[in-house]
């Protein structure tokens, strides 16, 4: 929705004046700052999400941001608080109720997600004053990001990154091989709860930029791309951050100069990178056919989960 309706500013190919023009508006500067914070936090958290294969939980937490924002607006509070409160609360609910095997977890996650989205819909239906309808919450907007909002994003982002730095090593261990980690005395369950809460905070941050439906673009796609490109943890983490930043800033620029929504550009740029990475890898694989495939596929997990289905 964002700039649709009003005429979009014209893009001349003179980059210096273009950026000067764009950054002459405080809200665009704020958008770039907020985008940078969100991209870095999401990339780092998302890297673990992809490693732990918790994409569905991540998606649910992002969906939760919608009723959070809508409910906060209904109550007359700032949307920011709504985002954080509900995302972290939903993370705790999912963490508390888990443990019934993979298929039950997914049913639970799905139910929580659908119910909260429905609540969000109820809130927007009750709150008639919402000008743009639910669409700017769902698909993201870069208009009207205030300096105080950027500060909140920065503080929360710093806390998330600090906690993640503290628990990073054991979390990596627990993610890669939970059985061995448990045997060595790593508190696997506690770590997974902490991680879910961090995930909640990060999704709340991202929702404010990409919209609740498109958090994945910053959370999962860059990490998936980086993990396709390299298997080395440090390098792929750095690459993830870089890709997320690029997608956000390029997306912001494109959205400023066109009538189409920010979420569309961010997802498209990130996804293009993913497809390129996949294409590059299959080219490499074709060249070195002798190399055995090191792809990890979750097929084995799915079969064993299905076996437990009757339990």
């Amino acid at each position: 929705m964002t700039l649709a309706g009003t005429a979009a500013p014209a893009w001349s190919w003179n980059l210096v004046t273009d950026f000067q023009d764009m950054w002459s508006y405080p809200f665009m500067v704020n958008a770039f700052r907020a985008g940078a914070v969100v991209a870095v936090v999401c990339a780092v958290v998302g890297w673990f999400v992809v490693l732990r294969r918790q994409t569905f939980a991540a998606h649910t937490l992002s969906a939760v941001a919608f009723p959070g924002a809508a409910g906060a607006l209904l109550l007359g509070l700032g949307a920011v608080y709504g985002y954080f409160t509900l995302c972290v609360a939903a993370a705790l609910v999912i963490a508390a109720l888990r443990g019934g095997g993979e298929h039950e977890d997914s049913a639970l996650t799905g139910t929580v997600q659908a119910f909260l989205l429905a609540s969000g819909f109820l809130f927007t239906a009750l709150y008639r004053g919402l000008l743009e309808g639910p669409q700017s919450i769902l698909f993201g907007t870069f208009l009207g990001i205030t300096s105080s909002q950027v500060t909140v994003l920065m503080v929360v982002g710093a806390v998330v990154l600090a906690v993640l730095a503290l628990i990073g090593r054991p979390l990596l261990f627990a993610s890669v091989d939970p059985e061995v980690a448990r045997g060595r005395g790593v508190p696997v369950r506690a770590l997974s709860v902490v991680f879910l809460v961090l995930l909640g905070a990060a999704t709340a941050e991202a929702s404010q930029i990409t919209g609740t439906l498109l958090v994945f673009a910053l959370m999962v796609i860059p990490a998936a791309t980086a993990q396709v490109l390299t298997a080395r943890p440090a390098l792929s983490l750095a690459l993830t951050v870089l890709l997320a930043l690029a997608a956000t800033w390029l997306g912001l620029t494109a959205a400023y100069y066109s009538p189409y929504p920010l979420g569309f550009f961010v997802t498209t740029i990130a996804f293009a990178g993913y497809v390129l990475a996949l294409g590059g890898r299959s080219l490499r694989e074709m060249r070195t056919r002798t190399r055995t495939r090191t792809l990890t596929r979750p097929g084995a997990d799915a079969v064993s989960a299905a076996r437990e289905a009757a339990a």
Partner: peptide
């Protein structure tokens, strides 16, 4: 694979946002 699904559908959803704008404008 979950990660592949996630990547594909978030892009498709982004495309949906694009179509909404296209439609309403």
């Amino acid at each position: 694979d979950d990660v592949v699904i996630g990547s594909v559908f978030s892009w498709i959803l982004g495309l949906g946002a694009f179509f909404v704008t296209l439609y309403t404008t």
